[in-house]
Simulated assay, not measured.
Amino acid sequence: MSERLQPGDVAPDFTLPDADGNEVSLSAHKGRKVIVYFYPAALTPGCTKQACDFTDNLDLLAGAGYDVIGVSPDQPEKLGKFRDKENLKVTLVADPDKKVLDAYGAYGEKMNYGKTYMGVIRSTVVVDEEGKVERALYNVRATGHVAKIIKDLGI
């Protein structure tokens, strides 16, 4: 399990395929703030709620200078189904080998019903215009999280 990121850290750059197989890089967003959020699986109730919340608030976030990228270990094809089924507008990228999830500290030991296992830790990292971590939030809840980010960022 990798270290969790802290404010002031350089956000690890990445290039991952989106739902259509196009490459998306964090470095391509330099000069804009980016909310990178990590979620366990497309087409599941909590992850759908979170993705829909980001989509519903995308204009507000974009107007305040933020781009949004959702990262999961799903394959691009599944992300395409997720986007189309839920009419999602956020950029979803695939990290099936979990290298980016690990680099951001968003993959590690979890506990559910008394059992310990390795999995995606629902997390959100806000990256500033220079590529540095502004905020790093781990073990966030799917419901109400986007509203909290908007409030915390003063948008």
Rank of each mutant, 00 (worst) to 15 (best):
M1L: 00
E3I: 13
R4S: 10
Q6S: 13
Q6G: 08
P7Q: 03
D9Q: 04
V10Y: 12
V10L: 14
A11T: 06
P12V: 09
D13Y: 00
D13C: 06
F14M: 02
T15Y: 10
L16H: 08
L16A: 02
L16E: 04
L16C: 09
P17F: 05
A19L: 09
A19Y: 04
N22F: 12
N22T: 14
V24R: 08
V24W: 14
S25K: 15
A28W: 13
A28S: 15
K30V: 04
G31S: 04
G31Y: 02
G31V: 03
V34I: 09
V34S: 14
I35L: 13
V36T: 13
V36P: 00
Y37L: 02
F38N: 00
Y39G: 01
P40D: 05
A41I: 06
A41R: 15
L43E: 05
T44S: 12
G46P: 03
C47V: 01
C47L: 11
K49E: 07
C52H: 06
F54I: 01
T55A: 01
D56Q: 15
D56C: 14
L61F: 09
A62T: 14
A64V: 12
G65H: 10
G65C: 10
G65R: 10
Y66F: 06
Y66D: 00
D67R: 15
V68D: 01
V68P: 00
I69V: 15
G70T: 09
G70K: 12
G70R: 06
V71P: 02
V71H: 05
S72A: 06
S72I: 00
P73C: 06
D74R: 11
Q75C: 10
P76F: 07
P76C: 00
K78G: 09
G80E: 10
G80L: 11
K81V: 15
F82E: 03
F82N: 13
R83D: 05
N87P: 06
L88P: 08
V90W: 12
V90I: 15
A94D: 03
A94S: 13
A94F: 07
D95Y: 01
D95H: 14
D97E: 14
D97V: 07
K98M: 11
K98Q: 13
K98Y: 11
K98S: 04
K99N: 08
V100Y: 07
V100E: 02
L101G: 00
A103N: 10
A103F: 12
A103C: 02
G108N: 07
N112H: 11
N112M: 13
Y113Q: 14
G119H: 12
V120D: 01
V120F: 03
V120I: 10
T124I: 05
T124W: 06
V125L: 03
V126S: 05
V127S: 08
D128V: 05
D128H: 05
E129K: 15
E130R: 15
V133N: 01
V133M: 03
R135F: 10
R135P: 04
A136Q: 07
L137S: 13
L137N: 14
V140R: 07
V140S: 02
R141D: 12
A142G: 10
G144C: 02
G144H: 00
H145P: 00
V146D: 01
V146T: 01
V146Y: 04
K148W: 15
K148N: 14
I150P: 11
I150W: 07
K151L: 07
G154N: 04
